[in-house]
């Protein structure tokens, strides 16, 4: 089955992905609009993956994390740095590892 790719980010990042032909883009301006857009994307049966910048995800805070927790298998969610390269101090995957296996394992590494 074919699915659309969605990108939720700042204007510049969105422009880059739009040049590559990404079908669904949303420029983050404020929390309300972006969350509404995410609700729409997560409910859609046509969207396979939502790429969102760490910075926007962080700005949305717990509202974003809650939506990721309760969403279905698809769309998959991927957080990426924007052009400044900023990533949150706590790596999500590392958190999952600590919670589930109780081990400290480094996943970052140049990321």
């Amino acid at each position: 089955m074919s699915f659309k790719i969605a990108v939720v980010a700042d204007g510049e990042t969105v422009t880059g992905f739009a040049l590559a032909g990404v079908l669904e883009t949303h420029v983050h301006v404020n929390k309300e609009e972006t969350l509404a857009k995410l609700d729409e994307l997560f409910a859609s049966k046509e969207v396979g993956v939502v790429i969102i910048t760490h910075r926007v995800a962080e700005a949305l805070g717990s509202e974003f994390r809650r939506r990721v927790r309760v969403k279905k298998l698809l769309p998959a969610v991927l957080r990426i740095p924007d052009k400044t390269g900023w990533v949150p101090r706590v790596d999500e995957l590392q958190e999952i590892i600590r919670r589930t296996v109780g081990a400290e394992i480094t996943v970052k590494e140049g990321g």
């Binding site: 089955m1 074919s2 422009t15 040049l19 032909g21």
Partner: peptide, 19 residues
Amino acid sequence: ETHQAAREARKELVVDIST
């Protein structure tokens, strides 16, 4: 101009997903 080109770019990218 870059933003304009991005608006004009053909949006056709899809990905095949199975399980």
